[in-house]
């Protein structure tokens, strides 16, 4: 029963008990930028792209429960500027070269760049050295493009019933590690059909042999905006999730 509502940028948004601001927004067709959030996963709250103002207080929409009467501000220049800064920091932190990246056009990070009209990063690029893992016959791990959203970590645990990925290190030395005796993907029990192998928002995890199946120009984010595609996908998954809960 949609018996309660709150507002996002003055639009009334219905919600059910237990839904986050993010879920309620997406189901109501309102886009709140996000990278670490995924409709099938437990909310996480690490990318901070979804930061909105809730009764004037900045909070992540993905981990904040919806409640009746909340006044949420989302699509403002100030918040989008903050999101642009976060995105610039993510681009400066890793090594991203979109023109030569298989994920281009499928990539949520790249699409977010277009969506937020980010043209460059004024921050110094950090050019980290991170190990590439090509040991798995069907999945490639290119850590240069990892943004530590832990979607793969959560998907492996929550959806695949495995524990293939984890984070190690701290601060800027945070790194994605693989749960296998050698630490290599090839020695883990990851399969290409796992959710974990397919849920990465960037080109850090790529299923091999599929990269160019959809030609450039016809990819999900080519020509279509991130918000449009995300809303369609998320609403479908969220509804599916709700159905299966019944």
């Amino acid at each position: 029963m949609n018996d309660q509502a709150f507002t996002i940028d003055d639009h009334p948004v219905p919600f059910r008990r237990g839904e986050s601001i993010m879920e309620a927004a997406l189901l109501a067709g309102i886009y709140i930028p996000h990278l670490c959030f995924h409709p099938l996963l437990e909310p996480h709250g690490s990318c901070r792209l979804c930061t909105v103002e809730v009764n004037g207080k900045p909070l992540p929409a993905c981990t904040t429960p919806a409640a009746a009467g909340l006044e949420v501000t989302n699509d403002t220049e100030a918040l989008n500027q903050q999101r642009r800064t976060l995105l610039q920091l993510l681009f400066a932190e890793g090594n991203h070269c979109c023109p030569s990246c298989e994920k281009s056009g499928h990539c949520e990070l790249q699409a977010m760049g277009y969506w937020l009209k980010m043209l460059d990063s004024p921050f110094p690029y950090l050019f980290p050295r991170r190990a590439l893992d090509a040991s798995h016959p069907a999945v490639l791990l290119d850590r240069d493009r990892c943004i530590f959203c832990e979607r793969c970590v959560r998907a492996s645990r929550e959806l695949d019933g495995k524990e293939v990925f984890a984070l190690a290190g701290r601060g800027l030395n945070t790194r994605l590690i693989v749960n296998s005796p050698s630490g290599r993907l090839g020695d883990s029990d990851l399969e290409a059909s796992d959710h974990a192998a397919r849920i990465c928002p960037t080109g850090a995890l790529l299923v091999r042999g599929e990269g160019f199946r959809t030609p450039i120009g016809k990819r999900p984010f080519d020509g279509k905006s991130l918000s449009e595609t995300c809303l369609q996908r998320a609403a479908a998954l969220l509804k599916e999730g709700k159905e299966s809960e019944r």
């Binding site: 920091l89 932190e93 984070l167 601060g171 800027l172 030395n173 945070t174």
Partner: peptide, 11 residues
């Protein structure tokens, strides 16, 4: 000392 969890502080 940043734990590295969230983007704004880690980077």
């Amino acid at each position: 000392e940043s734990c590295g969890f969230c983007t704004p502080c880690r980077v």
